[in-house]
Write a protein that binds this DNA or RNA. Structure first.
Length: 721
DNA sequence: AGCACGCCGACT
DNA sequence: GTCGGCGTGCTC
């Protein structure tokens, strides 16, 4: 545009004449201060400024550099109408824009941003640049969404720009052009349905329907589908005239809730927000929600930011599933984002699952949420019979050694197949099998560091801790020199079972081919955890074969995770009145195994929580990980003004990525040595820790690249040993 | 991150 | 008096 940046006419900008004089004066003053050689007042695009509120406060979308600062821009008159709070804008940003050549401002690339607010004046002392463009008049960033994203950025010591990238989907002009459908009136309140199985279940639904904001941790029972119960909670909230949001771990679960909502409410009352819809369709759905055409949302983790109007309920299902943790900075977890939403919007909160995380138990323990559980009688009626096969049983079991499967499992499979499908849960292929002595079953350990020896694909034994190769292993217990894998891959188990029951079809569900449902006829269904299909009428039996592998992981969550996966599979099995049986191959004395047998995931989580509190572990204490080159980490920690009772653990070296495997975020680049320190603060100090770390990051960025390399700060690191 | 500004030494 | 080296700091 040729008129851009032309020197102004003497006496100011024609169209701005009627503006309050002090506003214009301020803008003109800021222009006058421009460090141009022949400082003259300027206009923008040769045109006038907006009369009212001529300043636009903009969040410039430029990664982590600026952290949470806003920048003020002048609003040209022709953008006045479109430049509303919440719209996407484009601005010039960069030091280059002060370069003056032939009387024109140049340089500074065009950058995307969000218009945060319109103001009468600026507190910036330099000259304001003009908004270059309003990308679209759609106000995608509402005040509520801004408040939420800011709270998430604070909680996770991240930048607002990073969180906004997660919260606002990329624009699709085509989707914006299409009008969203007219909203439907609120539906009638649903009946209580199977919520009567839970103590206070009916009261919870009533509270939702009458506009209340109850908060509950819901331990779901097998039987009537959880998706249907969740749909009822959504319907009750809609009936109150408010909106509802449900976040689930994966597309399969979202499809189930979607189907349940359609069955209960008919089409048009809810949106499905998942990645597999494709960007344009997804944006159209998102817009329909933002525009208020649709009042309810079900989706995967990115839906946690969905701009539902007048939010009455947020719900999350199976919060122990790690896909509810965002992969992108600052890695917020859906459960915690929805906690923030419930607090900010003063709406109802529902955290449901067949199992129970320590975080969920903590919400109940602290009194913030109330338990929504079934009585023991209901549990006994719904949960299948669980039997265990421990090490002693295995040692005595000749058949198990010969055929990899314990006798009890064979019996359960044979019996189950007479009545319907049998589920076989096997470890994921990613789980490197650990090795043990073939004769006495003593685990094979590294002779240097006692780490676990693992069998690679290429038949090479390698220590899982120090990485050394072992070529001449022999058992220190019994002198044996033959090894066996402790767990068997899905394919081999499937083959073996198929041979044993030649008349029965074998179906597999896993990484590549995930089955959604299987018919209720006899079949062996071999599945990895999380990929179990739902069987029509329920499975007659389930064999959980990976107990050993799940429990030995050196992870705080190993027990909770194992229990969660077992219960998820066992919940697909018929009730005991129909002969439903589960066999788990794991030591019956272990706490998660006992919790499965008694079907008491809440009790398990409560005990775990007590232990974490005693040891000062999260989520009772809040932790943050600081990772980077050793010098950078120690410099960072020295410069950070941590809360007074913060405790620094480490730093310890970060294990480097084994060659040939993809580098995970937070792992050092090949050839570099990184360290990680953990910072721990007592309960209630989490916010102070996050803000201290954020401030230290900001200071570090401002100092520039000269004084050392960047460190990564991660609140609530998931993989602490 | 770019990118311009500025202080200081060397050269026409 | 003027050119240009890189160190420092800002981006509305």
């Amino acid at each position: 545009m040729s008129s851009e940046n032309e020197p102004p006419r003497e006496g100011g900008e024609g169209g701005a004449e009627g503006a309050p004089p002090e506003q214009l004066a301020l803008i003109r003053e800021s222009v006058r201060k421009a460090k141009t050689p022949r400082a003259k007042p300027r206009t923008w695009r040769g045109a006038a400024l907006a009369e009212e509120l001529p300043v636009a406060r903009v969040l410039v979308d430029k990664g982590v550099l600026h952290l949470d600062r806003y920048f003020d821009y002048a609003v040209p008159e022709e953008l006045d109408a479109q430049a509303q709070p919440g719209v996407r804008v484009r601005v010039r940003f960069g030091a280059g824009r002060h370069r003056v050549r032939e009387g024109r401002r140049e340089g500074g690339g065009l950058i995307d941003g969000f218009l945060i607010e319109r103001r009468a004046e600026t507190d910036y002392s330099g000259p304001l640049a003009a908004l270059a463009q309003v990308v679209s008049p759609e106000p995608v960033l509402s005040e509520e969404l801004l408040g939420l994203t800011r709270a998430v950025a604070d909680r996770y010591a991240g930048s607002l720009a990073d969180v906004l990238q997660l919260a606002v989907p990329p624009r699709s002009a085509a989707a914006e052009k299409r009008p969203s459908p007219a909203p439907l009136p609120p539906p009638a309140a649903p009946d209580t349905g199977s919520w009567t199985r839970y103590e206070h279940g009916g009261a919870f639904l009533d509270a939702l329907a009458s506009g209340g904001a109850p908060r509950a941790v819901w331990n779901a029972l097998p039987g009537p589908p959880w998706s249907e119960e969740l749909a009822r909670a959504v319907a009750a909230t809609l009936a109150s005239g408010r909106g509802a949001l449900v976040v689930v771990p994966d597309g399969r679960a979202a499809a189930r809730v979607d189907a349940a909502l359609t069955a209960l409410l008919g089409p048009g009352r809810h949106a499905l927000l998942t990645a597999d819809a494709g960007p344009e369709k997804r944006y159209a759905q998102w817009l329909a929600v933002r525009r208020g055409s649709v009042r309810a949302v079900v989706g995967t983790r990115a839906a946690m930011f969905a701009p539902v109007r007048d939010l009455g309920l947020v719900a999350v299902w199976d919060d122990g599933d790690d896909s509810l943790g965002e992969q992108h900075a600052p890695q917020p977890h859906a459960r915690d984002v929805l906690l923030l939403r419930a607090a900010l919007d003063k709406c109802a909160f529902l955290l449901g699952g067949f199992s129970c995380t320590v975080e969920a138990a903590q919400l109940v323990e602290s009194g913030w949420a109330r338990p929504l559980v079934a009585g023991r009688e209901q549990v006994r009626r719904a949960a299948p019979l669980v039997r265990t096969v421990g090490d002693d049983d295995l040692a005595r079991d000749e058949a198990a050694r010969a055929a990899r499967l314990p006798t009890l499992a064979w019996q359960a499979a044979r019996e189950g197949l007479r009545h319907g499908p049998v589920l076989v849960q096997v470890p994921r292929r990613g789980y490197v099998p650990r090795m043990a002595c073939d004769r006495c079953r003593a685990p094979a350990r590294c002779r240097h560091c006692s780490g676990p020896l693992q069998g690679q694909d290429a038949e090479v034994l390698r220590c899982g801790w120090c990485g050394r190769e072992e070529s001449a292993w022999h058992c220190p217990e019994c002198g044996g020199f033959r090894l066996r894998a402790q767990v068997v891959g899905a394919r081999r188990t499937a083959e073996e079972l198929g041979r044993a029951f030649p008349a029965v079809p074998v179906r597999t569900s896993g990484r590549e081919h995930v089955l959604d449902t299987v018919p209720g006829t006899p079949a062996l269904v071999v599945s990895t955890p999380g990929a179990e299909p739902v069987a029509e009428g329920g499975y007659a039996a389930a064999l959980l074969l990976d107990g050993w592998a799940m429990l030995v992981r050196p992870d705080l969550r190993a027990g909770e995770d194992a229990l969660r996966r077992w219960i998820a599979a066992a919940a697909l099995v018929r009730p005991p009145s129909e002969g439903g049986t589960v066999v788990v191959v794991a030591e019956p004395t272990l706490r998660p195994v006992q919790a499965l047998v008694r079907w008491d995931p809440v009790g398990h989580a409560v005990r775990e929580l007590a232990e974490r509190a005693e040891l000062g572990f999260p989520p009772v204490s809040r932790m943050a990980a600081v990772t980077g080159p050793p010098a950078a980490v120690s410099e960072f920690l020295a410069s950070a003004e941590l809360p007074p009772d913060a405790e620094v653990l480490g730093p310890v070296p970060v294990p480097s990525t084994p060659p040939g495997r993809p580098r995970r975020p937070g792992a050092p680049p090949p050839g570099e040595h990184w360290e990680r320190a953990l910072v721990r603060v007592p309960p209630g100090t989490g916010a102070a820790l996050a803000s201290a770390l954020k401030a230290a990051q900001a200071a570090r960025m401002a100092r520039g690249s000269g004084s050392g390399e960047a460190v990564r700060v991660r609140i609530d690191p998931p993989d602490i040993g």
